[in-house]
Design a protein around this nucleic acid. Structure first.
Length: 217
DNA sequence: CACCAGGCAAGTA
DNA sequence: TACTTGCATGGT
């Protein structure tokens, strides 16, 4: 079986076993952008509390976020942890959207994906994973998101023998899958779900739908 | 009590 | 280039 066939087979097994994950939880592109920043090295449950606070304060809005002081914002997002640095990071991306793109997320959707990715990466506080999460989940661009779970997944299933470099792993997925937003969206979410319920630390686990995978370590 | 969570930037050698 | 550390709350 080729790598492409095996990867697609794994995707289908995961999708059949677990169903659609409905990522990203968030009602608007802005909420997804905010969540992408807040979830950096933080559990999603803590992020939900912070976002709920933001909704209660009525600041889940580009203009409100542009106007609010970093100190006030820090207090509102406190449950997400790292609140001072995340407050600055939220202000950083909001400033770009507000000043250069007419205060709407939708206006930056028209920028070519490659250019947009570099724009996001140029913002202090947005690294590869956050940039790609925004591109895929907020803006529907066919970009594969790599994270710690993805690396563990590849290692556990002996799918990729290279170092853990983010862009090499991303290239592996994008070379072996059609550039399909739906597949990229669900595959990343399914990998996270699989790792969270079955493969937290040890490489082998029982009850995993991929147990029969011959090439698995 | 320790350890981790849907990272990133800055500092050091 | 390749480590190390700061950031910080909340769950297990």
């Amino acid at each position: 079986m080729t790598t492409k066939q095996r990867l697609l087979k794994i995707f289908n097994i995961l999708l059949t076993s677990f169903g659609k994950r409905n990522w990203w939880p968030g009602e608007t592109p802005l909420e997804i952008v905010v969540g992408a920043i807040l979830t950096q090295n933080t559990s999603w449950k803590n992020v939900e509390k912070a976002i709920k606070n933001m909704k209660n304060e009525g600041i889940l809005d580009v203009e409100r976020l542009y106007e609010i002081s970093p100190e006030k914002l820090s207090e509102i997002i406190r449950p997400s942890g790292f609140f001072n640095i995340k407050s600055k990071r939220l202000k950083n991306i909001i400033n770009v959207i507000y000043n250069k793109h007419n205060a709407t997320i939708e206006n930056i959707e028209n920028i070519k994906t490659y250019t947009l990715r570099n724009l996001l990466l140029s913002i202090n506080g947005i690294g590869p994973e956050t940039a790609d999460s925004i591109l895929l989940y907020a803006l529907n661009k066919p970009v594969f998101v790599v994270d710690a779970y993805t690396k563990r997944f590849l290692k556990n299933h002996n799918l990729y023998n290279g170092d853990g470099d983010y862009h090499e792993i991303q290239k592996f997925f994008m070379d072996n899958l059609r550039p399909d937003v739906y597949v990229f969206n669900e595959f990343h979410a399914l990998i996270v779900y699989l790792c969270q319920i079955h493969c937290r630390k040890v490489p082998v686990c029982s009850g995993c739908p991929l147990e029969g995978d011959k090439d698995r370590i």
